[in-house]
């Protein structure tokens, strides 16, 4: 397991003209850790994830990947990261297999890993739909396919923007299990969500983003058991924790 920290954001600021979307955000995600990002709509969650992924230039601050400060994320580094957003980002006219094939062949020198498609899809419960056109999928299936695509590249850092939206309860459970399995193998996960139950079930740490600032944090290990963590996260969500008041 690499000793370096996969993702470290230091004093990140992002402005669109007069609008400050992010201010002075510090966030670290370690290997094997699942960090949840909560906050109201417009609190800057998606912007923060986009900056971490290098899809948006930041106005202030530093982005460290794998222990090194990175201004322009290289292709090799992008190969070790994956981003799943709440938009499906799939080609609706192609089948699940073709979508996966495109992704895997784009990232590799040879089509070596095309054989890995079926096991990955089966693991996420899409085994029967491999050769169906994605346009016929339900939202939940699409979301699972996105996740399958992201995991197939065996990333070190996984960013998920609202992954639980449009998943049914069993789907959420499955996603949480898969994320936990991957994290146990060393994957660093940063996910944003409005779904407190899902967040509580899967994360090791939850941070609250409000008005572009990180205003609070709850660490599972600091709390007494699952109930304690649950209460702390819910309290954080209401913006009334000690940390939030302090900030």
């Amino acid at each position: 397991m690499p000793a370096v920290t996969p993702l470290q954001l230091r004093a990140i600021g992002k402005r669109f003209g007069r609008l400050a979307v992010l201010r002075n955000v510090d966030l670290t995600v370690a290997s094997g850790e699942i960090v949840g990002l909560i906050g109201a709509n417009g609190s800057g969650k998606t912007t923060l994830l986009s900056i971490a992924m290098g899809l948006l230039p930041m106005s202030d601050g530093e982005r460290w990947l794998g222990g090194r400060q990175v201004d322009d994320i290289s292709i090799e580094q992008r190969a070790a990261m994956a981003f799943v957003t709440h938009t499906t980002q799939l080609y609706a006219r192609l089948t699940a297999r073709e979508n996966m094939e495109l992704w895997l062949s784009l990232r590799q020198a040879a089509d070596a890993s095309v054989g890995e498609i079926e096991p990955v899809l089966r693991r996420l419960g899409l085994g029967d739909a491999i050769d169906r056109t994605v346009g016929t999928f339900s939202r939940g299936m699409m979301q699972r396919l996105c996740l399958a695509r992201a995991l197939a590249g065996r990333p070190e850092l996984l960013l998920l923007d609202e992954p639980f939206t449009s998943l049914d309860p069993p789907g959420r459970k499955r996603l949480a299990e898969v994320l936990r399995e991957e994290a146990d193998r060393g994957l660093a996960v940063l996910l944003s969500s409005h779904d407190y139950d899902a967040i509580i079930s899967v994360t090791d740490r939850v941070v609250l983003l409000s008005g572009g600032r990180l205003v609070g944090e709850v660490v599972r290990a600091d709390e007494r058991g699952a109930e304690g963590f649950r209460d702390a996260v819910l309290a954080l969500g209401r913006g009334s924790t000690r940390e939030a008041a302090h900030a």
């Binding site: 402005r15 003209g17 007069r18 201010r23 002075n24 600032r213 900030a247």
Partner: peptide
Amino acid sequence: ALDEAWVGVEDAPQ
């Protein structure tokens, strides 16, 4: 600069 000052003022209470 005005935009920045604006953001700066918003940052000030913190």
